[in-house]
Amino acid sequence: MAKVYVFDHPLIQHKLTFIRDKNTGTKEFRELVDEVATLMAFEITRDMPLEDMEVETPVQKTTSKVLAGKKMGLVPILRAGIGMVDGILKLIPAAKVGHVGLYRDPKTLMPVEYYVKLPSDVEERDFIVVDPMLATGGSAIEAIRSLKTRGAKHIKFMCLIAAPEGVEALKEAHPDVDIYIAALDEKLNDHGYIVPGLGDAGDRLFGTK
């Protein structure tokens, strides 16, 4: 069963408040999302495997820990997910980046892929799928399905804020995918927006509105 982690670290909570603030401008919004993504990456890498390595300190020989060299993949959901990529790469520079783009078919209301490109060695990598918002869960569920059909085995999902409805839907669709959230909000409103939320993350990131 999927686990849900809510990062209540004070630094994350503090920055998130200003991300929510509608008076925060595009440039500052972008910087804050970048910073929170870095902080979340710190938390999400907590379970990275380690192994022993022998080093010689100026005093004596000792055995110490190093990363076991797990191959990572980072997949932003277009377009707002891009805003979190640089922040995560600061901590995991060797991660390869892929992309998944989806749109909602106006007739069926189902998400449809319009762009998918993943690192060539999909099966060997541990993936983090990122999107600032988890609302109904439709995009995240479909994006993760895309990864799985292409052979991805280990997937985590990370977002800034989530609605309880979206978390439930994602857990049900992909019980093997752990979910990492900076804040779990109250609910979805009638228009499908997270309440209180932060508005449209894509528009605020790219300054398109």
Binding site: E51, L67, G69
Partner: peptide, 17 residues
């Protein structure tokens, strides 16, 4: 095998930087 992967990981990090 682990060592090989480790080296790969490191060399990738170097490559990006």
């Amino acid at each position: 095998v682990m060592l090989l992967v480790l080296q790969l990981g490191v060399s990738q990090a170097v490559a990006t930087s």
